[in-house]
Design a protein around this nucleic acid. Structure first.
Lengths: 155, 155
DNA sequence: ATGCAACCTCAAGCTAAGTAGAGGTCAAGT
DNA sequence: ACTTGACCTCTACTTAGCTTGAGGTTGCAT
């Protein structure tokens, strides 16, 4: 664990405080601390224990926001971010790699949603809506959406 | 508040217990009680305070399950169910009406998801991923998915 | 050198969608 | 009449993704 000292050997502009990161990303300070706790961010510390983020963490947080919009949970997002190189700053290519992987996930999600919607159409048509027979009652057809749903049925 | 008496004037077969409703729908008894609390179900009570559901509640619960699969929250589902007629048993037409309304919601959702995915593609291409300028950073483009996200940004 | 905004940790609270259990009552078959 | 499983309410706990507040420290500008 190395600390950043005031006036240390790194250019000061490379590091930003949690407040600055918050302003840059629009994410609340408390949320950024929470993200660190969840392993999405790995800030350094000053000798006085204050967090210091890299500029590239702005992009990291941006990615989190986008991924959330696409319906991913923080766990999944962390898994994606873990693909980024450890030591060096991520390059465009690095970002493209993980974004492509995510695209597949989101495509799957859209597909499942579309399929379920189409089945709903069928069910309206036949008027059944009685899950016992209906195709909609398919345990494996879980949407990756958040809805926990009744555990007994859907898990 | 009228109670159902044992051997009352209604055909016994019209009413089902919470356990039966649970078996018919696959939804846990505790979840059904929870749904009542949330206003999704409105069972009558026996003189001994036990819940008695209508047979049509089976369909009602089925609808809840389907809507959940499509990513709707219980609040939204309740709003849809409120469209059903109060006194009489809902007809096929009634169900079709609210299902069509729901289809629109879900279509919107799929669209938004698709758009966001496409924008992600763009952002990868340009390498920006810096929400300040990026189209992805659009407060109005909320996916109706569960992800609460950082309130400060998305609300 | 001092003031004060910004930072720190830790604990508690919130919403959604339930589950689990304690302690007590009901109803239906023998 | 009795037994026993199904039912009742109420409280507490769960996960995700945070926010709020208390109480204390840091660091930058004057």
């Amino acid at each position: 664990m190395w600390k950043i000292s005031r006036g240390g050997n790194m250019p000061a502009a490379s590091f930003i405080s949690i407040g600055d990161l918050s302003k840059r990303t629009g994410v609340a300070v408390s949320a950024l601390r929470f993200y660190e706790e969840k392993g999405l961010l790995h800030p350094l510390r000053t000798s006085g224990n204050q967090r210091r983020f890299l500029r590239s963490d702005i992009r990291r947080v941006s990615f989190v926001l986008i991924a959330q919009k696409l319906g991913l949970g923080l766990d999944e997002i962390e898994a994606h971010l873990a693909q980024l190189p450890q030591g060096r700053n991520p390059t465009l290519t690095d970002w493209q790699k993980i974004s492509r992987a995510m695209r597949e996930q989101i495509d799957e999600r859209i597909n499942l949603l579309t399929r379920t919607r189409n089945q709903l159409d069928q069910c309206i048509g036949c008027g059944c809506l009685s899950l016992a027979k209906c195709q909609l009652y398919n345990k494996d057809d879980r949407l990756g959406l958040k809805g926990p749903g009744p555990r007994a049925v859907l898990d």
